[in-house]
């Protein structure tokens, strides 16, 4: 039938309506023309599929690490929202993961706010990887937890902060939910760094970074596990080569 095939070739939306309204749907002559199920599913914008890994669109921001991109839903960091990065000790490369993102944030003219980092943020290292310190703002470690969370919420709400990094221990679900909402309104990405994972955490995405011991791997290598991510069914793990961006920049 003419109207049916036309619509299927064009766009998914009218097809959906037709499927119920048109009496000729079940007509046998039609089957040869009809697209495959996979095609229908992929082209229907109204349909959400539980597994983003099915390749339903690339809506994330590239992490700069192809291996990491391939296991993240949306093929990259989410545009907004809250991420938890868990590293048992500092120095696992947890910040290295974000370096390409930070660079793109700075290039867009946005600011990066660091809220109570555990140690002194070392400016020469930032400049080395190509992040201008002009747009970096640090809130001291001595700030009380309440004030730190307040500034995190405010920063997530403003449009100027492209990235908010915060070091916090366990946060109650209510607080996380609030930060999540703030991030959605400001269209900002917030990253929480933690030492310990808790499976009850309500963040949208949880990642774990691990370095290798001298015996099992090289200095540059790190293992990233996506413990939880909206759109992924199960934890996925990949191994990354860190510090590549380092050499790229200096060269």
């Amino acid at each position: 039938m003419k109207p049916y095939s036309e619509s299927s070739a064009k766009a998914p939306e009218p097809l959906f309506n037709k499927a119920y309204s048109h009496a000729d749907v079940g007509n046998q002559d039609n089957l040869a023309d009809s697209p495959s199920i996979e095609e229908l599913l992929n082209h229907n914008a109204n349909l959400w599929r539980g597994c983003d890994m099915a390749g339903q669109g690339i809506h994330g921001r590239s992490t700069g690490y192809p291996q990491l991109d391939s296991i993240l839903p949306g093929r990259g960091w989410p545009q907004k929202g809250l991420i938890e990065i868990i590293s048992p000790q500092w120095g696992m490369g947890e910040l290295q993961l974000l370096i390409p993102l930070m660079r793109s944030v700075i290039e867009q003219g946005h600011w990066i706010l660091w809220i109570s980092p555990p140690h002194l943020l070392y400016a020469p290292a930032l400049v080395q990887v190509g992040i201008s310190t002009d747009q970096v703002l640090v809130v001291n470690l001595e700030t009380s937890c309440k004030d730190a969370l307040w500034s995190m919420e405010k920063a997530l709400q403003t449009n100027n902060c492209g990235l908010v990094l915060a070091w916090q221990t366990w946060l109650p679900g209510k607080v996380l939910r609030r930060l999540q909402l703030a991030a959605e309104t400001g269209k900002t990405l917030g990253v929480l760094f933690k030492n310990r994972d808790s499976k009850y955490s309500q963040s949208k995405m949880r990642l774990q970074v691990k370095g290798f011991s001298p015996q099992t791997g090289s200095f540059n290598k790190a293992e990233v596990t996506i413990i939880k991510a909206r759109g992924n069914f199960q934890p996925l793990t990949t191994q990354l080569e860190l510090y590549r961006h380092h050499s790229q920049h200096t060269a």
Partner: peptide, 27 residues
């Protein structure tokens, strides 16, 4: 314009936290 916005945000931060808690870094 965005600088303008940022200034407003920073003023608010300062009002809440006090000036000595907010730092910028340089080499």
């Amino acid at each position: 314009y965005s600088d303008n916005n940022l200034n407003q945000f920073m003023e608010q931060l300062k009002a809440k936290l006090g000036g000595h808690f907010i730092n910028s870094i340089k080499t």
